[in-house]
Amino acid sequence: MTPAVFLLLCGLLLSSPGNAQRRRKKPPAPKNPIDSIGIQGNFDPNRFAGKWFLVGVASRCSYLSQNHYRLEATNVMVTVADAETPEKPLLFSIFRPLDGHCWNIRQTYFPTERAGRFQVRGRGRKVDVVVAETDYNSYAIVYYQKAGKISAKLYGRSIKVGDAVTAKFEERMASIGLDLNQVFYFPVYGFCDSVDEYHVLDETKYTGIR
C-alpha cells in the first residue's frame, strides 16, 4: 500500500459517521444533588394535607447562621388543589410574623413524574422539593434545592416533635454534610393563623411558563 493510499484510508476512517458521533458526544450532565435523596414510598398527598408546624430547618446559608435568633413561629396549611386530577398539586399557605405583622405566603408545589417530588416556581429560581420521610401523623422531613444547594425542613403536626424524631432529623442532616451548627429550631409561641389583605404574598400565580 502506497503512503498516499494509506493516508486516504486513514482520512476516511477518521471522518466516518461513527467517529464524528464520538467526537460530538457530550460529556455527561453533572449530577443533581437532590436526586440522591430518597423519596417517601407511596407518597399520599391527601394524607400529607392539613396543618403543619415548622419545627426546624437545616441550611448552609450564612445569613441564617448569623440571624437564626430572628426565626419566628411558623405554621403551614397544606391543601390538595384539583384533587380530582391525577397531578394533585399541593398548595402551601404559610403563616408567620414579620416586623410586627402576620404574613401569609402562598405557594404551589407542582408535582413531577415521581410521587413525593415537587417543584416550586416563584419570582426567582425554581426550587426542587422532595418529601423524604413522613408518617403523616406527627412529622415530615422535606428537602429543598435551589441553585444546586440543599436545605431541609422538619415539620410537625404539633409545635414539638419527640426526641427520637429530632435525633432522626439531625442524623439525616449529618448524612448530607450539615452539622448541628447548621440546624436551627423555631420558637413554639407567637403563631399567626390569619392575616389582613395587605399582608398576603401570593406566589401561586407563578407557573414557570413564560
Rank of each mutant, 00 (worst) to 15 (best):
T2L: 06
T2M: 05
T2W: 01
P3K: 12
A4Q: 15
V5M: 12
V5K: 05
V5A: 10
V5W: 10
F6W: 13
F6G: 15
F6P: 13
F6E: 14
L7H: 11
L7Y: 13
L8K: 06
L8A: 06
L8N: 09
L9Y: 15
L9C: 15
G11P: 11
G11N: 15
L12P: 06
L12K: 00
L14M: 11
L14K: 06
L14S: 08
S15F: 14
S16L: 05
S16T: 12
S16D: 05
P17N: 05
P17Q: 03
G18V: 11
G18T: 08
G18H: 08
N19S: 14
N19H: 14
N19W: 10
N19V: 10
N19R: 02
Q21C: 13
R22T: 15
R22L: 10
R23F: 07
R23W: 06
R23G: 10
R23N: 07
R24L: 06
R24F: 10
R24Q: 09
R24I: 13
K25S: 13
K25D: 05
K25A: 08
K26D: 15
K26Y: 12
P27D: 12
P27T: 13
P28M: 09
A29R: 11
P30W: 03
P30Q: 01
P30I: 02
P30N: 01
K31F: 00
K31A: 03
K31L: 00
N32H: 04
N32I: 11
N32E: 04
I34V: 12
I34W: 07
D35S: 03
D35C: 07
D35V: 05
S36H: 03
S36R: 04
S36Y: 02
I37Q: 00
I37C: 00
G38K: 14
Q40T: 04
Q40E: 00
G41Y: 02
N42Y: 12
N42G: 08
N42E: 08
F43I: 06
D44M: 00
D44H: 02
D44E: 06
P45V: 07
P45E: 05
N46Q: 06
N46M: 12
R47D: 08
R47A: 10
F48C: 14
G50Y: 01
G50D: 01
W52V: 00
F53S: 08
F53R: 01
F53Q: 02
V55K: 01
V55E: 04
V55N: 02
A58T: 04
A58R: 00
S59F: 02
S59E: 01
R60A: 12
R60D: 11
C61N: 14
C61M: 08
Y63R: 09
L64V: 04
S65I: 15
Q66N: 11
Q66C: 09
Q66I: 04
Q66S: 07
H68C: 04
H68D: 08
Y69R: 12
Y69C: 14
R70M: 11
R70V: 14
R70S: 15
L71H: 15
L71N: 14
L71V: 15
L71W: 07
E72T: 10
E72P: 09
A73P: 13
T74C: 13
T74V: 14
N75C: 07
V76M: 03
V76R: 00
M77F: 11
V78P: 08
V78E: 07
T79C: 11
V80I: 12
V80W: 02
